[in-house]
Design a protein around this nucleic acid. Sequence first.
DNA 1: CGCAGCATAGAGAACGTTTGCTATATGCTC
DNA 2: GAGCATATAGCAAACGTTCTCTATGCTGCG
Lengths: 348, 348
Amino acid sequence: MASITEVARLAGVSAATASRVVSGSDYPVSAATRERVLEVARALDYVPNALARGRLKGRVPVVAVIVHDITDPYFAEVVRGVEDAASAAGFLVITCSSERDAERERSYVRLLRSIRAAAVVFAGSGLDDPALTEEMDRHLAAMRADGAAVVHLSPHALGEPDVGVDNPAGIAAMIAALVALGHRRIAFLAGPRSLYVARERLAGYRLGLEAAEIGYDERLVVRTSFDADGGALGVETLLATGVPFTALSCANDLLALGALGRLAALGIAVPGSVSVAGFDDIPTAALVAPGLSTVRLPLREMGRRGFGHAEGILAGGEPSPQTLPTEVVLRDSTGAPAAAAAHIGSVA
Amino acid sequence: MASITEVARLAGVSAATASRVVSGSDYPVSAATRERVLEVARALDYVPNALARGRLKGRVPVVAVIVHDITDPYFAEVVRGVEDAASAAGFLVITCSSERDAERERSYVRLLRSIRAAAVVFAGSGLDDPALTEEMDRHLAAMRADGAAVVHLSPHALGEPDVGVDNPAGIAAMIAALVALGHRRIAFLAGPRSLYVARERLAGYRLGLEAAEIGYDERLVVRTSFDADGGALGVETLLATGVPFTALSCANDLLALGALGRLAALGIAVPGSVSVAGFDDIPTAALVAPGLSTVRLPLREMGRRGFGHAEGILAGGEPSPQTLPTEVVLRDSTGAPAAAAAHIGSVA
DNA sequence: CGCAGCATAGAGAACGTTTGCTATATGCTC
DNA sequence: GAGCATATAGCAAACGTTCTCTATGCTGCG
C-alpha cells in the first residue's frame, strides 16, 4: 500500500508538498510540481490513509445512525437518506441496530467513540427510562466533548428532535380525514407506552378527537409492541372487548399492516366493515391490497437533513431545528362506514 | 478525551504497561498494577482510540456491506445478519447502497480502503459488465493486498459466492410445488438479464420445467427490473401477449408483490384465477393478503455467516464456501388451477 | 551462596499524515 | 542595486497506540 512518503519520494518532493497536493489544501504548490505528484499518485493507486488523517483531526469521515432495527422499513428509509447525503460529502455510514436495548446501545456508542465517528444520528425515538436516560446523557455529553455531532430525528428524553415531524398534527389530520368520511367511533393502536414517539401519536389521536368533538373512550385504545405482531394482537384485543368501532387508526404502518392481516384472516372486510389507517407511509403501504391509507412522512428527507444538521454542527454552527411536513394519503383501506354492519365490535 | 498516556501517568506506570492492561494483551502484568490501571481508566472514562490502534494494525474493526439498496428488505435482512455477528465480535458495520451504479461502487470501495475497513461483504449479485468487472477486480485485489477480507454472498463475475444458496434448485423446487398443485402453464418474471442471480433463477425455472417435462415457452418469460414496478409491468406484458397461464413464478418477492398489486387492481383473483409465487421470503411476504407463497432464503443467517467467513479470512484461514438450504413456503397466493377460467391470458 | 532464568516494567521506535515554522529563490520597488 | 515581499518547498513535531528490546529484581536450583 503506497504511502504519501512513497509518492513524495517518487515525485522528487517532500512529503509535505505531496500531502498539500493530494489533500486539496489551499497552500500554494506550483502547477508543475502538482502535476508530477498527481501523476505518481495515480500510477501508485495511492489512497490516503483516513486513519492517519483522522488521528490528526480527531475524527474520521464517518457518520453513524442508531436505529431500532434496520429491518424496519421506516429506519431503512431514514438510513438511506443519511447515506445519500453522507456519501455525497465523502462520508461513510455506520448502521447500528440497537433493538431498543440499553446495553447494546451503550456498547455501540462506545465503539463509535473509539473510532472517533464524526457524527451520530439517532433515528429512533427515545425510551422513557430514567436510568437509561442518565447514562445516555453522559455518553452523549462525552461525544460532544470529543467534537462529534449528535443529532436526533425523534423526540427523546433530552428534548425535541433536531429534524423531525409534527407527530400529533399528523395523526390528528388522519383522524380528521376519517371523520370526514363519516367515522365517529375510531379505535387507535397506540404502540408501547414508554416510547416517546408513540406518546406523541396518541396525543395526536386525542387532539383529532377533540377537534371533531368526539369523546375519548379508553377502551378503544390498545397498547402493544410497535410492529406487525402488535397490530394483529391489537385487533384481537379490540374485538374481544366488544366495543364497536368503524375505523382503526394506527400509530404506525407496521401496526396497520398487522391489523390488516388479522382482519383478512378473520374475514372482516376492509374497508367494507372497518377502515384501517396507518402512519409513516413505508413503501409496503402502497404495495398491499387493499392499499393502506396512511400519513406520509418524508423519511428519506429526514435522513438527508439529519446529515445536513450534523454537517452544520461539525462546521461549528448551531443549525436550528426543523419540522418537516406530513401529508395524509388516502388509499383503499379507508372508506365511508357501512350503514348496516357498521360496528365490527359486535361482529366478534 | 483521556489518552493511554494520561491513564498511565495517573496510575503511576508506563504507557506500555497501561496499554497491555487495557488492550487485553496476554503480556504478564501483576494483579496489583492491573487493578490500578483499570481503576484509573474507569475513573477517566477512557475509551481507546481505535484510529491509533488501527494505524498500527493496518485496519480498523469495521466491516462494510455493499448492497444494491438498503431499502430493499432482502438487503436489510442480510445487513442485519452481518450486524448481529459483527457487533458480537466488536466490529462496526458500514452499509453502502450502490444502486448498482459502478461509479458509486467505485467511490465506496475507495472510501473503504481509505479507512482501512477490515472486510467487505458484497451482498448483492454482480452485473455482467466486462468494463465494470475488470475495474472491480483491480479494486478487490488491492483490498485483499491491503489485508482486508472480501466476501461474496451472491454469484458474481469472478465466481461463485462464499456463502450463498442454490438459486436454481430453489426455483426448481417452487416450480415442482406448482406442478404438484396441478399447474402446467407457468409464467416466469425473470428480472434483468444482466444480473447473475436473475440468470441463475431463470435457469432454475428451466430446470423445474424439464423435471416436470413441460416445454419451455419463451413467451411466458418476462424480463423487467428486479422490483415491484417490474412485477406490475410483467403482469401487463404477459396479459398483453395473450398466452394463457395458470401460475406466475417470480424471481424475487418484490416482483411477486408488484404482480399481486397489479392483479388485484385488474380484478383478477389470486389464487382463484392465477397462482403467484415469489422468492426470498422477505418479511412483507407473510404480511400481505393473500399471503405470498415463496421460497425462504436464510437471509439473516447468510449475513451472519458472511461475517463469519470474513473473520475466518482475517484470522489467516481459508474458510470453505457454504451453500445454505432453501425451503418452499406455501401460503395463500397459490392453489390448484381453476377448472373453468384456467387461462387468465385469455381474460385480458 | 551464586547464577540462571523468569516475571514484570519501562524506554523508544514506528505507523502516515498534516501543519506551523523556516528556508530559499525570484522578482519587484524604491 | 539593495532590500523586501512573495511564492514555493522542506523540516520536524505531533497525534495515541502497540511492540520490540532492554532492564531490573526476584526465585529457585545446583
